[in-house]
Each structure stands twice: as structure tokens, then as C-alpha cells.
């Protein structure tokens, strides 16, 4: 199937000051490649600091000014340059940000969802209807529309962000740690919504550190380590002792789950060692 999003050999570095005025480039992502096809939930798992969120920001064009990007990003078969990104962002590509602090604290939730719908190109007179429909799809009653973000619980705020990202019928949805800070019940709810969207033909890129729960909804899993993609495996390969996983790091990650072996390696391995084990 044709890939919706294709990230190929993406590298990213930041200019940082060493000393007062000298600067050098700090590499953050190196040779990151993955594809998302319509109808799948593609999970990206890895340690915090491995660069998962940076990849999401790179795809959405949200990197700060001192970032330098190389490699190719294709969306729907065409290169995703700054101009095309500006036209598609919010319409065809949408992001569910990691922090619920992304909600404007001074604006009622319903209005923020209407803004997103407007951004996605929906006619102004239709946005109230669309906003109400989207919020109710995620089990949020009409009083949530009138509520300010601080009066919402973490789970509800997360669903408002989900509603904002899906109000415009985007083809690709990037969910950056959408379950952080949620209790098991709300976590499963959010993951199930993502699954539903994928079943409706959307492509979902699910960024998370939580391998265990990502596996319940994902079709494929890409493992991130120290700024690069180690391997992409179908989720049913995470089974037993992980015999069908090719990389030792992926296997170790699987075996470290408390519900499996809870095994920790003897000590932290450097990235070079992880690669040389392959």
C-alpha cells in the first residue's frame, strides 16, 4: 500500500553554544526512517531523550530556529517542504501534543475545537456543529464546550486535544505520548479512539515510551534508540521471549517489562555497543 508518510534518512542537529560565542552542531537524530500507511497505528517506542518527539516536530515543522534538518520527508508521495507543510498542517496532518498545557488556559474548550476546525478549512458557519459532533464522539458532553481547560481532568483535557486534532478530518495524526499521566481506564480509552481512527482509514503515528500498552493497538512498532530507528517489527513479533525480534535492544526492551522478565541489563550500554551487538 502507498505510504502516507515516508521518513527517509532523516538527520537533525542543533546549534549549541560551547563557551560564550562559539557554537557547534549537536546531532540529535541520525538516519531515521519509517513509513506510515493508511489504516495502521504505527507505534514509535524508545527511551525518553531518544528523539521520538523531535521526529514528530520535524514532520510538523515545529523545530526551533537553531535546528538543522537533512534527509527526506514525503507526504502522500510528494516531498513535504516548508511551503507544502504550511498548507497541509492542521488540514491533512495533525498533532496531538504531549502536554495538555498546549490548551489555551483563557479560552473555553469548545472555542478551541472550533478554531482547529476553522484552521482545517471548514466553513465558519459549520464549525460549531462540527465541534459539537467531534467532542461528543469522544464522550464529552456539551458542558465541556463551555469549560475552561483548568476545570477539566487530565483525561478530559486529553480528549479535547484529540477532538482538536480530529475536527478537520486529517489523514495523518501524530499522537505524542497521548497517554502520559492517565489512569488505566482513560489510557485504554484514548488508545481505542486512535485504533478507531486507523480503522476508518487514517494513518496514526503513536509516539510513546509505553511498549506494553502500545502493543494493544499498534500494527507495527518502530524502536528508537539514541536518535536512530533500530528496527520496525509487526506487533505480533513481541511474543514469548522475543525470538522473532532481530535487534538485541528490542528484545531486551521486551524482556524488561514487569509482566515479562523485569530483567535489567548488567549496566547501561553505549549506543555503539547496541549497534555492534547486531
Amino acid at each position: 500500500m502507498k505510504a502516507l508518510l515516508a521518513v527517509d534518512a532523516l538527520s537533525l542537529s542543533f546549534q549549541r553554544y560551547s563557551g560564550w560565542f562559539r557554537r557547534h552542531a549537536v546531532p540529535c537524530l541520525n538516519d531515521v526512517s519509517l513509513t506510515v500507511v493508511p489504516g495502521e497505528v504505527h507505534a514509535v517506542v524508545g527511551a525518553s531523550g531518544a528523539g521520538k518527539s523531535l521526529m514528530a516536530w520535524a514532520v510538523m515543522g515545529l523545530l526551533p530556529a537553531n535546528a538543522h534538518l537533512s534527509g527526506t520527508l514525503n507526504f502522500d508521495g510528494l516531498p513535504l517542504d516548508a511551503e507544502r507543510l504550511a498548507a497541509l498542517r492542521g488540514k491533512c496532518l495533525a498533532l496531538i501534543p504531549q502536554s495538555i498545557a498546549a490548551l489555551d488556559p483563557l479560552v473555553r474548550s469548545g472555542r478551541q475545537v472550533r478554531w482547529s476546525a476553522r484552521r482545517a478549512g471548514i466553513a465558519a458557519h459549520r464549525t460549531p456543529h462540527i465541534a459539537r459532533q467531534t467532542l461528543s464522539r469522544y464522550g464529552l458532553a456539551t458542558d465541556v464546550e463551555q469549560a475552561y481547560p483548568h476545570t477539566l481532568s487530565g483525561g478530559m483535557a486529553r480528549r479535547v486535544l484529540l477532538a482538536m486534532a480530529t475536527a478537520g478530518d486529517a489523514d495523518l495524526l501524530i499522537a505524542d505520548e497521548p497517554t502520559t499521566g492517565l489512569d488505566p481506564c482513560n489510557r485504554q480509552r484514548v488508545l481505542d479512539y486512535l485504533r478507531e481512527l486507523a480503522d476508518a482509514g487514517k494513518g496514526i503515528l503513536l509516539i510513546t515510551h509505553d511498549l506494553q500498552h502500545a502493543l494493544t493497538v499498534a500494527n507495527r512498532v518502530t524502536v528508537f534508540h539514541a536518535g536512530t530507528t533500530l528496527e520496525t517489527a509487526p506487533s505480533d513479533a513481541f511474543d514469548g521471549q522475543g525470538e522473532r525480534l532481530t535487534m538485541p535492544y528490542t528484545r531486551a526492551l521486551w524482556q524488561a517489562l514487569p509482566s515479562n522478565g523485569f530483567q535489567a541489563p548488567a549496566r547501561e550500554r553505549t549506543h555503539e555497543e547496541v549497534l555492534s551487538l547486531a
Binding site: 517506542v45 527511551a47 506494553q212 524488561a256 530483567q263 535489567a264
Partner: peptide, 30 residues
């Protein structure tokens, strides 16, 4: 907030120290 591998590493180290010092611990988790 940690991935499974980092989580396992942290807990193994912490449990070792806590046991060697005979400390008590309350672990909050869902």
C-alpha cells in the same frame, strides 16, 4: 515516564540500595 528497560534498571539499582540499608519504602504506582 520511563521506557521498560530504563524502568527495570532504575528499580534493580534502587531495590539493591534499599535492601542493603534496611530502609522502608512506599511504592505508588498504577
Amino acid at each position: 515516564m520511563l521506557d521498560a528497560l530504563t524502568q527495570a534498571e532504575l528499580w534493580h539499582a534502587l531495590l539493591q540500595v534499599v535492601a542493603s540499608r534496611r530502609m522502608g519504602m512506599l511504592v505508588i504506582s498504577h
